[in-house]
Design a binder for these strands. Structure first.
Lengths: 132, 132
DNA sequence: ATTTAAAACAGTAATAATTACTGATTTTGA
DNA sequence: TCAAAATCAGTAATTATTACTGTTTTAAAT
């Protein structure tokens, strides 16, 4: 695939993803983009999510549910997984030490560490309210 | 499943897992336990890995390859994924701050954070040597 | 504006990891 | 030793994802 051509379907997929902060799955993207493009195919959604991810325009994430999740926010940031409802949220918090973590880990590791991501888990705000 | 009964297959699965530090997949466990129990079935391996995981005797992990990986070490510790060969390793290093990370994150999060895990990525020792 | 080759599409089939089902075997307490 | 329940082996089903095929869309050159 030498040249990448524009496609409205790909634009719609990225546009939708940018409206969401909850890292939807391919299935969710498909169901929503179908509102605008009723006969878009699931294969097109997968192909474009992978393509966008390869181009670095979005991030592909893996959580414990075993599904691929997609995030239009490509800045390095941490994630939270709710053990009650499975919701995935961004955690914008970074500890002061976070910036130095890679070099610290490198000093005790024989290979070469280039990055890290921290997954938090617990009860999300919604589930906290509902369990009162 | 009220009472849990002993089974040699389950013991063999856990015993094998305890010999490994590289977080094998169900398939790898299957291929190895078959050396001792030649007609163990893949379903048995999956069922017991899930059972052991539910009982808290092992940990089920998810990496970018989309496969389930299993770890007999249930102490909280961090992981490393090699972007070259896909190898998964333990990172025993913990920053001084790591212990306080949950409470720090809690102070800026509306829900309740109960734990975290950090995934490092980079080039593993083996791949570093081979690429010289 | 037309033409044209490559890229992308919709729709469908195939793959691969995992889970569920079934009748036989093993475990364990009585 | 016996019997009920758990577990097993083997197989079928499910589910997420990827690959294939013939048609449509894009974009650059006429």
């Amino acid at each position: 695939m030498a040249v990448i051509k524009y496609s409205r379907q790909r634009k719609a997929i990225k546009d939708f993803l940018m409206t969401r902060k909850d890292h939807p799955t391919a299935e969710t993207v498909y169901l929503n983009v179908r509102k605008t493009y009723p006969n878009i195919s699931l294969g097109t959604v997968y192909r474009n999510l992978t393509l966008l991810s390869d181009m670095g325009e979005i991030q592909k994430l893996h959580f414990k549910d075993g599904l691929d999740h997609f995030d239009a926010d490509t800045r390095p940031h941490n994630h939270f997984l709710c053990t009650e409802c499975g919701a995935v949220l961004d955690i914008d918090f970074q500890s002061d030490n976070d910036f130095h973590l890679d070099e610290q880990a490198n000093s005790v590791f024989d290979g070469k560490i280039t990055g890290h991501i921290t997954y938090f888990q617990g009860i999300c705000p919604d589930c906290c309210i509902n369990s009162v």
